[in-house]
Simulated scan of single mutants.
Amino acid sequence: MLKIDFHDETNSIDEAFIDLIDRVLTFAAEKEGIVGENEISVTFVNNSKIQELNRNYRQKDTPTDVLSFPMLEFGEEAMEFQDEELPRMLGDVVISVDKAEEQAEEYRHSLEREFSFLALHSLLHLLGYDHMDEQDEKNMFARQEDILNEFGLERS
């Protein structure tokens, strides 16, 4: 099970977006075989705040669309989820509402799909996926597309 704590620092996110992202991430967690009690937080911010976080944590002084802050360490092996008594905190997701709006327009798809893509992308990072090399990038982006398509959020 995945418990998601949402925080909207922009006071602009409609409850329907929160519900959609909750459903997409819960669906993705099931597809990824996550069992037991697991938690993440999803925070919506503006470009100024995400630029500050990007500068402080990644030494990149520009706004970005989404940041992931994993709480778990991953080795060479895929992470296995087992039922445990205590909830496991997977990490934090921070989404720039400004960037999501820009990218939805740029890629000519709905804001719903963009928010869902960014949240899913970040969840996969929390689960150990990355895109540091070409093969990892292909695997991660294919997984994202598969999950979004199966959920019913195909590219328009």
Rank of each mutant, 00 (worst) to 15 (best):
M1D: 04
I4Y: 00
F6L: 11
D8K: 11
N11P: 00
D19I: 13
D22N: 13
D22H: 03
L25D: 02
A29G: 14
E30W: 06
I34F: 01
V35R: 14
G36I: 05
G36D: 01
G36E: 03
E37F: 03
N38K: 10
N38Y: 02
I40F: 04
I40N: 01
S41E: 02
K49M: 07
K49D: 06
I50P: 00
E52I: 09
Y57S: 11
Y57Q: 07
R58H: 10
K60L: 12
T62Y: 14
T62K: 14
T62W: 13
T64F: 13
S68L: 02
S68A: 14
F69T: 02
E73F: 08
E73R: 08
G75D: 01
E76Q: 02
E77R: 10
M79L: 15
Q82P: 03
E84L: 14
L86N: 12
P87T: 12
M89Q: 12
L90F: 00
G91P: 06
D92N: 14
V94T: 12
K99I: 10
E102T: 08
E105F: 09
E105T: 14
Y107F: 15
R108E: 15
H109V: 05
L111S: 05
R113P: 02
R113S: 13
F115Y: 13
S116E: 07
A119Y: 04
S122P: 03
H125D: 08
H125S: 10
H125K: 00
L126C: 13
L126R: 01
D133M: 07
D133G: 09
Q135A: 14
K138E: 09
D146V: 05
D146A: 12
L148G: 02
E150P: 04
G152C: 08
G152H: 04
E154F: 13
R155W: 11
